[in-house]
């Protein structure tokens, strides 16, 4: 029970962080068809901006300014880069973001150096919220949950209750019709791209100090976000939400299980000597394979249900 509750909490916080990252990506991906390889780079930019601002003026202003700055950069990238490439098709668009990820990483190296920077959790939030079976639950994790839930709610409200939100939703499914109705779809694209980047930036602001702010942080999260988006289904924020929580919980709980094929088959007397390939496969525990499980899940999902959990069309 103790393990279950703590893992539940850990899984949900991690899942919510993943959701913040992937919500922007899923918007961009489903609307523009662009697999934005630089999305995690915008997350990194958010963290570095927040570090710089929090050193100068403080964490709370950074919480607002950094995502806006990242969003602005995102819009510039869309306006002067992606839009030019758009006419050549999706592959060049994707490759453009691929190259962009290189550039952002090098820029971060140049400006902030190659080691981790000391971006800290603000003093107001560094205590513990409550204790559960002797394990402290940090205030900051609570704050992370709060921010991501707030973000989910406001995103939902913007998309369903505002005019621009309705246009975006329509453009997700019927871009041509929306264009025919006289809406400036390229501008909507720019807004969505900028907005998506801003969300990634926000995730960077609150994820950067909970984890580590260093130039490799983009690379380490890049692939897992695609898993979330694909798993959740195209164009579905709700799907991305469920997929994020699912992956968060899956990874957290898998760590707790020491089961392996060897143990499973032990009663049947099937075993292999250690030091051989099969022996190693037999001895591989679920816990040590935990971080790879999302990819297994993704491949299986794509094979059996390519539209994802809540998607309405194939990826």
């Amino acid at each position: 029970m103790e393990f279950f509750l703590i893992s539940m909490l850990n899984g949900v916080t991690y899942g919510l962080l993943l959701f913040m990252l992937s919500s922007g990506l899923t918007l961009i991906f489903s609307m523009m068809g662009v697999l934005n390889f630089a999305h995690a780079s915008f997350y990194m930019l958010g963290a570095y901006f927040a570090y710089q601002i929090s050193v100068k003026i403080g964490f709370w202003p950074a919480l607002v300014i950094a995502p806006l700055a990242v969003g602005a950069i995102g819009m510039l990238v869309e306006r002067y880069g992606l839009r030019k490439v758009h006419k050549y098709g999706h592959v060049p668009e994707l490759l453009f973001t691929f190259g962009l990820a290189y550039l952002i990483e090098e820029a971060v190296h140049l400006i902030w150096g190659r080691s981790a920077v000391d971006y800290r959790v603000p003093a107001e939030l560094s205590g513990s919220l409550f204790k559960i079976y002797g394990t402290a639950f940090p205030e900051y994790r609570g704050f992370m949950m709060l921010v991501s839930v707030l973000m989910l709610v406001s995103l939902y409200l913007v998309l369903t209750r505002t005019r621009i939100g309705l246009v975006i939703q329509a453009a997700l499914t019927h871009p041509d019709t929306v264009e025919a109705l006289g809406h400036n779809v390229p501008r909507v694209f720019m807004l969505v791209f900028g907005g998506g980047c801003a969300l990634a930036g926000l995730a960077g602001v609150i994820g950067g100090n909970a984890l580590v702010t260093e130039p490799g942080m983009a690379l380490s999260l890049g692939a897992i976000m695609f898993v979330v988006v694909v798993l959740g289904g195209l164009g579905s924020l709700a799907g991305a939400f469920i997929a994020s929580l699912l992956i968060g919980l899956l990874q957290t709980f898998a760590v707790g299980f020491d089961g392996s094929l060897g143990r499973l088959f032990a009663p049947l007397g099937i075993s292999f000597p250690s030091g051989t390939f099969l022996g190693e496969l037999w001895g591989l525990t679920i816990s040590s394979a935990a971080p790879v499980l999302p990819y297994v899940l993704m491949v299986l999902m794509l094979i059996f249900r390519p539209r994802g959990l809540l998607g309405t069309r194939d990826v």
Binding site: F226, F277, E280, L284, A289, Y295, V296, M298, V299, L302
Partner: peptide, 29 residues
Amino acid sequence: ITKKAGTTFAMITLGIGEMVFAASLMFPS
């Protein structure tokens, strides 16, 4: 994986790539 083309295919290759890479460190024999 070739049952589908397009992004589905791209994503599956990405996933398999990650899995094989992880396996290459897990099975030293």
